[in-house]
Amino acid sequence: MTPFTYSRAADTAEAVRRGTIPQARYLGGGTNLVDLMREEIERPDTLVDVTGLSHEIEELPGGGLRIGAGVRNTAVAEHRSVRSRYPALSRAIVSGASAQIRNMATVGGNLLQRTRCAYFYDEAGQCNKRSPGKGCDALEGFNRNHAILGASPACVAVHPSDMCVALVALDASVHLRGSAGVRHIPLTELHRLPGDQPHVETVLDPGELITAIELPPQPFAARSTYRKVRDRSSYAFALVSVAAALQIEDGHIRDVRIALGGVAHRPWRASRAEEVLRGGPVGAIAFAAAADAELADARPLSDNGFKIELARRTIIAVLGNLAGETA
């Protein structure tokens, strides 16, 4: 770990003041950043501890929720309103990592997790994320866990978060604060696809701090769920995951939200599948058509072709379960 100075910010303004210098990083629970620093992948010279800031979960007028970026993952998962109104979010969180890590990790930090690609972690590997322009060893290497959607010749890594997948499905937005002021963007716009700059993973400006997540009111999200498929029964990253919410009226799909995890450089909102389903009939045929539409552009690598079929089946099964539940 490269030496750094550590300080705890008393408030958001102070945090942003200290965080807006080159080589400064915000420190949440540390569950990813400390590991990356120990690997010398991240080498900040200044750490601004923001865990003391924004740790409230507030009910918003009209029925939404505002979750402070410093709230621990466990606190979100166990919150009564999250469990009853956004169950996909609770389910996604408790399917991720381990209880110890969920007790440490913050919401803001979870959003900014970096990929688990082996070549990103290995100093001997070539990785455009780690050393832009050096090439990608995963393209022809071990890529069983890698992206089938939205990848580029420069990077085929996936975003590892479970929580983000549920948040993306639930139309969450992100409150940001930087030296230029505050802004509020949809979560779907936070993470970038790799393109030819895979080391730029978000649209955050230098020093910009995530201060909160906002969940809009969404009555049918009470019937949402999250399904994670992984090699090990627990404590493993997703091969494929699906977050979905389904609203059925008079035998037709009135509205639907679907997001996929483990398939792309960012949590993947399945907008095409949603379009196919919205207003249409309920049933396995429709669900399959929706999955196929979403995965039409999926491109397998040498080891991960199974993810296309796995994602297809998991989408169909999750929608089927939700339809059964709501019928």
Partner: peptide
């Protein structure tokens, strides 16, 4: 080179398994 030199990428059974 061994590419999964860690207990998160080399899976051993957990309690749930």
């Amino acid at each position: 080179r061994v590419m999964n030199p860690s207990l998160s990428e080399y899976h051993v059974p957990v309690h749930m398994d």
